[in-house]
Amino acid sequence: MTTAAHTSSPLQSCTWRRPLAVQAPSRAPAPAPAGVPCPGTSPRQSGRWLIAGVCALACALVPAVAFSAPAVHATSETSRWGFSAAYFGETFTHPGVRLGAERTLVERGGYQLLATADVTHYVHRRNHIALGAGLGLGNRYTGMSGWYVDGILSVAYLHAWPQGDVYARGDDGQVAQVFDPGRPYVAPEFSVGFGLDLARRAVAPLRVFVRLGAFGQYPFNGYMLPHLTGQVGVIWRPNLSPR
């Protein structure tokens, strides 16, 4: 079996597990520091492409860093509700969107206990399309500077469709393209995020965040299939005014 790892042919597939497991995690470049100019991107050259992606994420924080300059008074006002919109990437690059709401249940100084609700849609081209709705609980710690970290545990209903035409055998025994109603799944999720509360910088009633997470898709071929996710987005707190 292992001999296939030396192969010069794409023919064997019973050995994919080993090479993929070994090779996958080791190629990610270190994130570029915020403020470094983004290099030119060459999508087909993977290393540069990934660096560009990471750099873009880093650059996404640059405005937030820039906001820190005019910091004046940290607000003491609180808003119990927040509404979020984010780019949602399954395995980071399979694009989607997540819209959500959060409500602060408990607040003690910089600590918040949150209840969250969200709807998510993403497309993994030629693999699947997913639409989900979930509820969760989270903990968030915000420093005096406005930077914060949080962790959210949630569970969602996920409906997924193959991303393409679907063929099946009909009652008459003939194979034809069919309407695909999709399949239902349960999707527990955990994510950790960090971001900046712009209200603390007296800029806007917004938080910007980057979030990494994982969710499971069950039942997928009899087991729970993990997915890695990345999010970049904003949370708007409507009744909070910047000072």
Binding site: P43, W49, A56, T93, R126, V166, Y167
Partner: peptide, 23 residues
Amino acid sequence: IVALVCCAACQGYYDDGDYFFVR
């Protein structure tokens, strides 16, 4: 910037040939 990230995700995808599913 977020939109640029989204667009970057779409570049250079393996989308040659034809693709469908059998259920």
